[in-house]
Design a protein around this nucleic acid. Structure first.
Lengths: 344, 344
DNA sequence: GAAACCTGAGCGTGATATGAA
DNA sequence: GTTCATATCACGCTCAGGTTT
């Protein structure tokens, strides 16, 4: 008995090969492979047996070409964002439950979002789920004219036409507020925000920080440092914090990666956390949960975000109609760990 | 002027639509879209113009179905491994240079390798590049009977038949040796290895550690703790180290994630690094470079691994023949950062 | 003969129409 | 009428082979 599938020539077995071996028509084999009705139990088993013997596998491309529906959702994500990895995991599960397939397309150094989206379109995806897209809103609107588009974590101004991209996001301002409230409750007043620059969600978190500080009567202590969504950005901001100006007693970083960079510089320069300075992140990615110092962070409900994103995409694909609301906003939840404490 | 593509009914434009608009045959449009020769300059421009106007996009699946070559490489990776993210980035670039496309399939909680590979096969990939595959070697051999398979980072016993999987990997034993040499040169004698269990490369790193320790006459200090490729595994091993038995002066962790878990527990329990204990990781993933404490680690040459993997896959696909050697071994390079110092 | 173009066939499926038990 | 099975076509594209300048 050989494990190598018995194929006539070098080619891969097709419906016709299975049909020939089982002594039935290709149409019947198709029925059996799709688990559709219209085939007898004994024949069904015989066909499955034949398929197994020659190692037949349905050709996804031919399948998609023929059937009008592809049941395929395109997902764009950033390879280097642990938070996106968490989201993709959730999207896989949600799509699975809804009976859809996922086509992944990564954004990385040397691979732009433009490029990533183009491959998804060429793959005949029925809808696009974009994780933290950075392209101009106009480009997203244009895309949304071609097929349903769901933007996750990137907020967009509601489009007038009603056929624009839909949005699934965390209430970023509320998250920043929770972080500030927590720090103020611990006794902090000098709370600095290292922001995310132009990253998705950055504007809302900045606003949430400002609003919360003002509400606590700490408007005079407002201080936003330019940052970004990466460790490098956080590290740069922390260096500025350490070398110049008065040191705050707490830092609210744009996200966990940024917070990680801040912590890095602090530890290297002898600033203890949370002894000298408290640090709060955002996302509650695995990074925050596991890296050396359990990070106090604003948690996003990843699996809910993923479910909502898939749900919206599927609903749009199957109904064709624009939804009543164009936005789902998921509440964040502060996760207190070891990087926050009362000020010295 | 509308951004929405003008499609007759709800369907997406095809070659035929472009052909009708440009007043040529579909075959000619095909030629133009593929940038093949056989079309005049003016006609070419007219066709492109028509395509642009109706928002035509080639259908990748129909294309692949028809042409015998798909020029598509399937890549299986683990969503939660930063090291894999680095590799995928390299694979994208290398495939690009070779004129191949990439189909990503992730392994995650709830999505097995079996499942990941099945979707790649259904997508008619010409070859499979598996990052750190964990399935039994027999299964890989079976797969390799169907199409070219390259295993990255997972070593395999050379197959007798010559049509087995090919391997691209780092010299893991050599890497472990470099780490031990470094620690011993610093004066360490009690060097413990937190291993990777059954993870790819774990056996070689264990062996490299043992060999190196013996060569330094430290056979009596040999100590291997059961670990794994995750932060949790490293943390568990470190807890065992802290609570029971004599504390070593240095720890060689299976990889950076494992090392991260070790560091976490050490810092939480008041063990300073590198003051009390030195820690060395493996991979030199972004994790090691950026997280709070610059980790001394054994670096893998990611872009070279990626290039070799793609090169092997492409060569196999295009020649059809089995290669002379079935393995590429890339030398590692120790990267000394801040987590190693002389013993107390 | 070469360049520019077209015709026709078929890749591996899924859906419909139709027939036989 | 219901169940099982088949023949036939179309999906969107590429390619081999033809025809015309």
């Amino acid at each position: 008995m050989s494990l190598t599938p018995a194929v006539p020539d070098g080619k891969r077995p097709t419906l016709a090969d299975v049909a020939a071996r089982a002594g039935v028509s290709t149409a019947l084999v198709s029925i059996v492979m799709r688990d559709a009705k219209g085939a007898g139990a004994t024949t069904r088993e015989r066909v499955l047996q034949a398929a197994r013997e020659i190692g037949y596998r349905p050709d996804a491309r031919a399948r998609l070409l023929r059937s009008r529906r592809s049941r395929l959702l395109g997902v764009q994500f950033a390879l280097q964002h642990p938070f996106h990895a968490d989201l993709v995991e959730g999207v896989y599960a949600a799509a699975d439950a809804a009976g859809y397939q996922i086509a992944l397309s990564a954004v990385a150094a040397g691979r732009s979002e433009q490029r990533a989206v183009e491959t998804l379109l060429a793959d005949r995806c029925e809808a696009l789920i974009l994780l933290g897209p950075q392209v101009p809103a106009a480009r997203l609107a244009e895309l949304a004219g071609q097929l349903p588009v769901v933007s996750v974590a990137r907020r967009l101004r509601p489009s007038g036409s009603g056929s624009g991209p839909e949005v699934v996001r965390t209430a970023d301002d509320e998250g920043a507020r929770q972080a500030v409230d927590h720090l103020v409750a611990l006794g902090h007043r000098d709370v600095v925000h290292v922001d995310g620059g132009r990253a998705p969600g950055a504007a809302d978190r900045r606003r949430g920080y400002r609003t919360a500080m003002n509400r606590h009567g700490l408007g005079a202590h407002l201080r936003v440092l330019p940052g970004g969504p990466t460790e490098e950005a956080g590290a740069a901001a922390a260096r500025a914090l350490v070398t110049a100006g008065p040191r705050p007693t707490a830092v609210l970083a744009f996200n966990d990666r940024c917070a990680s960079g801040v912590l890095d510089v602090f530890l290297r320069t002898g600033v203890t956390v949370p002894g000298d300075v408290s640090v709060v992140g955002f996302d509650d990615s695995r990074l925050a949960r596991l890296a050396h110092i359990g990070l106090t962070t604003v948690g996003q409900d990843v699996s809910r975000l993923a479910r909502l994103a898939v749900g919206r995409a599927v609903a749009r694909v199957e109904s064709g109609a624009a939804p009543a609301a164009v936005e789902d906003v998921v509440p964040p939840r502060l996760v207190v760990r070891g990087t926050t404490a009362p000020p010295p």
